[in-house]
Each structure stands twice: as C-alpha cells, then as structure tokens.
Design a binder for these strands. Structure first.
Lengths: 361, 361
DNA sequence: GTTGGGCCTGCAATCGATTACATCGTCATC
DNA sequence: GATGACGATGTAATCGATTGCAGGCCCAAC
C-alpha cells in the first residue's frame, strides 16, 4: 500500500535527523505519527484493543511493526504507579533449597507480566536499606518472603506499613503476625513420617530438629512429640536431638545417637540435609542404614533420590509453593482495597518411601 | 526550632486534606516545600551534595526526615533513562549450581545501587518475549548470561543490537561472538587434575565429559586429551565417556566403566555431580572409591566436602565469578561510548585434594 | 564605581506513557 | 427534523524526578 510506504519513509527520516542518538528507540509518539492517530489511541489500542475500531487496530499494529516500537516500562510504571515487579527475599541466596521455589515463582510471575527481583536478607541489611523501601520507592509492587527469621524490628515496620497486604510469606512464616502466607502441611507430614516408621515396627524413634527459634522446627517437633505420644511410644528426652537443618548438624546428631546407651531404631530428621549428614557420619563409624537404623528426612530435595541409600522423605512440592505464592501475591496486588483476599494456602505433602527406612529386624 | 515545627504542621495538613490517598508517600515537592527551597535544589542535595551550601544541606536533610521522603525510582528511571537494575539469565533456575554465583552478583550489584532481575532462558522463550526487550524497554541496563546454549537466532539478535556492549557472559560463553565474558581457567584446571592423578601413579585415566555442544565440555575435553598425550599416556577412545554434567549421567558412566575389560584406574569427571553419580553407582556394584578406582570432579560444589568419600575436585570460586561479572558489567554500563573496556576476565581455579583419589596400589 | 567570576539557587522543560474529559459523527427514535 | 445515545478519537494534564540555563549575590580586582 502506497500510504504505508510513505509513512515508513517519514519515520526513517525522523530518526536520522533527530537527536544525537540515532539508535533511539521509538516512542508512542512515533507510532502515533506513523499511524496518523493520537498517542491516546495508540495507548488504548495496545492495552485495551476492544475500545478502538478494527481499522485503527490494524493501522496501529502496522505502525508498531514499522517503527519497532517497544513500550518504555519506566514511563508506564511512573504513570500507573506500578512497578510490575515483585521482590523475593531469601535468607541466603547460596542455599539451593530455594532454587526450585524461585523457578515456580518466576514461572507464574512472568506469565502474568511481572518481573522478579531477588535480594537476600543479609545484603539488604548490610547495604543499610530498609526492606520496606522496595515497596515505598516503586521498585516492587509486592514481596514474597522466604525467611521466617527476619529481625523483629523489620517485621514490625513491615506490619505497620500501608503495604502490609502486599507482603506474603512462603514456606516459613512468623507467628503472631497477620501476613498472608503459603505453607506446607508440616504437621501432617510429620505424622505420616512417624506412622511410617511405626508401621515398619519401630517403637523407639528419635527426632533430629531444626534450629531453635525456627517456626518449622517447632511445628515439626511439636507434631512429632504429639504423634509419638498418641501411638503410646516412649520418648526419652535425649531422643530429641538439636540440629539446624544442615549437613554438619546431621553429622553431630549421628555422634549423639552413637553415644546413646539405648539407641532408637529409627530417626526422623527435620530436613534431608540433616538426614544425609546423619547417614554419612554413621557410615564413617561402620554403621549401616537401614540395617542398623532407619533414617528419614523432610523436603525430598533433588539429591534425596540419588543418595546412598536413596532417602525416604516427606515431599514438599517446591514448584507449587512458588507458583501458589506468586499467584496469591499478584491477586493481592491487583485487589481493590475492600476486596476479599485469600489469606493462607496450605499445600499438601506426601510420603516418599525409599531405601533408607526398613522393617525392624 | 519554631520554624521547623511550623513546617511539620504545614506538611501534615497537606497530607490530610490532599488526594484521596492519605498514605501517599511524599515527593520531592513535599521536601522542597518543607525545606523552603526548589525541587531542583532538593534533587541536587540528594544526588550531588557538594554543589549546595552547608545550610541548605542541613535543611533538606531535616525536611527529608520530617516528610519520610523516599525517592520514586520509576520517575528517576524515566528521566535518567536508566533502570538501575541488571538482568541475570539462567538456563534453569532450579539448578543449584548457580545459586552461589547469584549471591556474588547480587552482593556486588546492591553495593553499587543496582537491583537484580532474574529470568530463565526457557521462560523468556515460553512467554514469547524477546530477550533484547529487557534492554530495549528500560527494564534492565545490562544482562549477565549464564547460559552458553542460547538459541543462535537469539544470539544474533543480541549481537547486532546497539546494546551488545552491555551483555556479558559468565562461566560459559559462545565461541565466535564478541560479547564480554568472565571465565574460569578451564584448561589449567583440567591439566592440574590430570597431573594430580598422574602423580598418584595412575597411568590409565578416563574422562567423563559434559554434554555435547557445551563450550565447557569441549574446552575441558580438549585440554584433557592434550595433557594425557603430553604425559605420554595411552588413551583408548572408550575412556572418553560421554555425559552431561548430571548425577544420572554419572551413574551411566559408571556402568560404562564397569563394562570395560581394561578399566582405567582413575576417572576425571567434568563436574562434581557426574563424579557423585559415578561413585554412587559404583558402590551399588560393590566397587569402592578410592580403593578400586580414583574419581575426581570439577567445580567443588558445597556438597563435595561432605560427600562420601569427600571429593577431590577443581575449585571454581563461584562467589568471585559473580562479583567479577557484576563489576565488569556495571563498568560497561557506565562507560562512555569511547571508553576503554575490559573485555574478558579469566579467574583462577585450584585443585582441592580430598579422599576420593589415592595413590595407585 | 564598575566589572567579572564563582557560588548557589530557581525556573521550567523534559523523560514517555496513561487517562479523564471533551468532541465529533452516526444512527435510531419520536 | 430534533434529540439523545453511543462509539471512536483527540486534547491535554499528569505521574515525580533531573538538569540546562539564567539570575542573584558577594567579593575581589581594576
């Protein structure tokens, strides 16, 4: 069509003789000029095509193609007061436990047109920034927190902030606060674990716990004690071995187990890393799993299946955790102030039976 | 001081009777009003304090405190044409190999006032976005790519983009392109590995490789072959076992090794995951490491030290990789068009000797 | 007293989109 | 033929910062 060729030429001329930046990307104005409509119409066509006529839609689409137009997000963010991005806060970036959760978050966010910003608690703290600034300064529209161990001061600031409803905790949470959250069935998972060991004939069961103060540690430990008592098993205090979710703590726990004079025949560890450390240390001392003792973990991390022996564990669907968290948060970001909001999601866990647990001989 | 009390009252009144949003955060205007200066002066005070007088500086600081002012980054980004953030592109978010690198990147970025956006190649592709859009639409000022397996079309688009100088590859890279990069001494690491095994008395050494087409795989394999020949060792073709960096491939490689009639006494794996899978599979078949065969890996991931037996490996400092990448990229972003730019950094690796390798019996 | 320079500050344009409101044309209805 | 409703589009204000330019002040030098 002759008209559109003309337009192309017009456009090229402009970019050649325009500002110093020849490679300047084109703007709404450029598209409007080429399509011979106003910028308002172009904007409407792009964000809400239904309100413009069919012919305009075609001309704008053509003009967009000709000019190679890309929206400038800074401008849109400024005008709409939205950052179209979400901050994910981790206690520690280097911890691989979180990577699958991130994958889930990212998958859902990008599908909804949001970007994912990442920061770690320690770094934010070190840089002297306040966490709430991310929301206040229009860098992020909301926040997914994967760290239940936030500083109480920070928590208080967040809770009193007008942005509190756009903060969501995933995996971990903080008791006594009113933040939205996504959690796993920690109690049910723990009960399933204890019952699994019980069904295998074990009557003396130990528990290696997470770090003191951690909300998951307490939830799992309480559920463990409760279930063991419900089954009428004896539980000696030294069978609750303090750990901290890490490999190294698992090793120490194994030494503690070895030192017992009345050794439990099964051990439920609060994380897979603990269980792996536990088993590793045992095998250094010539104990064999599951022959001498059944050991199981919690989380079902990728490595669990490849471990020797393959680890029995309680599976958390980390991809689902991430996706659910993102979905809930975006819903909250978009919700009107008076809208109804889902406040907590509790995701199922499942027992994965492998070779690190076996029937009592 | 009476004056400043007055100002506080003025300010409060404004927020109470202002727009519908009572919780509206304050702007430069508000600060200017309270400090009784122009917005220009406030802006200058904040971004370039040296150019304003001492007394102004004090009054603005006071006004900032009173109003609780936080800069609006969307506005600044629009005006300065900078996003003050960097995109990190991973092949796969769920792969824990990258988490420490991310930690390094993030640490350096936040120190320089930049945010870190994360996306995975697969997702960007799936969402129909073009990678270069992140730079074009002012979402990110630059890009760190940790994926050497990008689609050739995408690579071409990136290379021809005016933004090409703000793209940097880390760990992996793409031969034949001119992107800046941060790499490790893959050749030197490989040589050190081979010589370590040689020094232990091994004369028949196998290599389990990474995935075909991967630039690290080829670099390490070529260096391996070269070094083995330099040492005058025999190298039978079946001693080069194809893998792909994963645990599962390590298991398969072990089966291949077992099936050999003339078994090498040492195996150099192109990744720690390969080595772990290899050892795991061997122990299922009643072979013992390092008694029956010495095995070593590459990367020195966190788990290597805790593995049974603790793994000999070639250590890459992933934190340093990340920090270097971030530093180089920001330098490029800030550099004037004619400035001199560092184009490639090669980081040292080091041999970490543990118990998975031993002297030939 | 005039001039010039340096220092500090203010005015106002600008970045590039969104959107409330006004306008215009068309068509059905009475 | 007048009226009103409706759909499509344009006008212009707006989001909140940055920055080129101009102006005011003060002091030194002539």
């Amino acid at each position: 069509m002759f008209l559109s060729i003309n337009n192309v030429i017009d456009y090229k001329a402009r970019t050649e003789f325009g500002d110093q930046t020849v490679t300047k990307t084109s703007t709404l104005q450029d598209v409007a000029r080429v399509a011979k409509v106003s910028t308002a119409t172009v904007s409407r066509t792009l964000s809400n095509p239904d309100v413009v006529s069919e012919s305009t839609r075609r001309r704008v689409a053509e003009a967009v193609k000709v000019t190679g137009y890309r929206i400038n997000r800074a401008a849109r963010n400024l005008r709409t007061r939205r950052a179209h991005s979400v901050l994910v806060l981790l206690p520690d970036l280097a911890n691989p436990f979180f990577s699958t959760i991130l994958e889930g978050i990212s998958r859902n966010l990008s599908q909804q047109g949001y970007s994912m910003l990442i920061a770690s608690t320690a770094q934010v703290h070190a840089s002297g920034e306040r966490l709430v600034d991310y929301l206040d300064d229009a860098r992020a529209d909301g926040m997914i927190v994967l760290d239940g161990g936030l500083d109480p001061d920070v928590v208080e600031t967040l809770e009193n902030s007008p942005q509190a409803k756009r903060i969501l905790f995933a995996c971990e949470w903080i008791d006594g606060t009113s933040f939205a959250s996504v959690r796993c069935q920690n109690r049910q998972g723990t009960r399933a674990a204890v019952n699994h060991l019980f069904d295998l004939g074990h009557r003396k069961i130990a528990h290696v716990t997470g770090p003191v103060g951690n909300v998951l540690m307490h939830t799992r430990k309480d559920a463990f004690v409760e279930e063991v008592q419900k089954l009428g098993l004896t539980l000696r205090p030294e069978w609750l071995i303090a750990g901290d979710f890490s490999l190294a703590a698992g090793c120490l726990a194994a030494q503690a187990w070895i030192a017992l004079d009345d050794r439990p025949t099964a051990v439920f560890c609060a994380s897979d890393q603990l269980a792996m450390g536990f088993i590793a240390e045992l095998s250094r001392h010539e104990f064999s799993v599951p022959k001498d003792v059944s050991v199981m973990g919690f989380d079902d991390i990728d490595l669990a299946e490849q471990f020797i022996p393959p680890l029995t564990s309680v599976r958390q669907d980390r991809l689902l955790i991430g996706e659910t968290a993102a979905k809930m948060l975006i819903a909250r970001i978009k919700a009107p102030d008076d809208g109804h909001l889902e406040h907590a999601a509790v995701l199922p866990v499942s027992l994965v039976t492998r070779e690190s647990t076996a029937a009592l001989q």
